[in-house]
């Protein structure tokens, strides 16, 4: 797999079937349904849980907006990943082109996916720091690899979008 920036696009090329499949799983991996810990992490309370009024107002007014934001990001990524569908070319010749204006959506969706995977498998700090774990011998190992692969993509996107416009400090 090769990954680089060309003008206003981020390109992931020379994709092998395994990594292409991990990419295709990003949208599905953002779904916290069926995993209360993941749902709880994506929609964490804005204050100590004893502040019931504040937390219930948040649930009523802010959480729907967060769900909409996360869904929009995931849909953007899913649309970009359509490039990987179809069988007319072998994966090795495929290139995924991500417009740089979609970078924020990708960062968000990748982060959702990483948080959901981590919550689902309840990885320890030690596992999360073990970037060279090998070989993949179980579903848990595979999920940890997937989480690290998504982290690698996030790092690449962050590097390529080059920081951010700075606002005036307060």
């Amino acid at each position: 797999m090769e990954i680089c920036r060309r003008e206003d696009k981020l390109e992931i090329s020379e994709l092998d079937p395994f990594l292409a499949e991990l990419l295709r799983q990003i949208p599905a991996s953002t779904n916290p349904e069926g995993t209360p810990a993941a749902e709880k992490r994506l929609f964490s309370p804005p204050a100590d849980r004893s502040k019931t009024e504040q937390c219930s107002e948040w649930k009523l007014y802010v959480e729907p907006e967060l769900r909409r934001l996360f869904r929009t990001a995931t849909e953007t990524v899913a649309a970009d990943l359509e490039q990987l569908n179809g069988n007319e070319k072998p994966f090795a010749n495929r290139t995924l082109r991500i417009p740089t204006q979609h970078a924020d959506a990708w960062l968000n969706a990748l982060n959702q996916a990483r948080l959901v995977i981590a919550a689902k498998y309840n990885f320890t700090d030690g596992e999360l720091c073990d970037h060279y774990r090998s070989p993949i011998g179980s579903r848990r190992d595979l999920s940890l690899f997937q989480l690290n692969f998504y982290g690698f993509l996030q790092e690449f996107i962050l590097r390529e979008i080059g920081g951010c416009p700075e606002k005036t400090s307060d």
Partner: peptide, 9 residues
């Protein structure tokens, strides 16, 4: 702190 979020992010 959340050990999953990348430091650069």
């Amino acid at each position: 702190n959340d050990p999953v979020n990348l430091m650069t992010y």
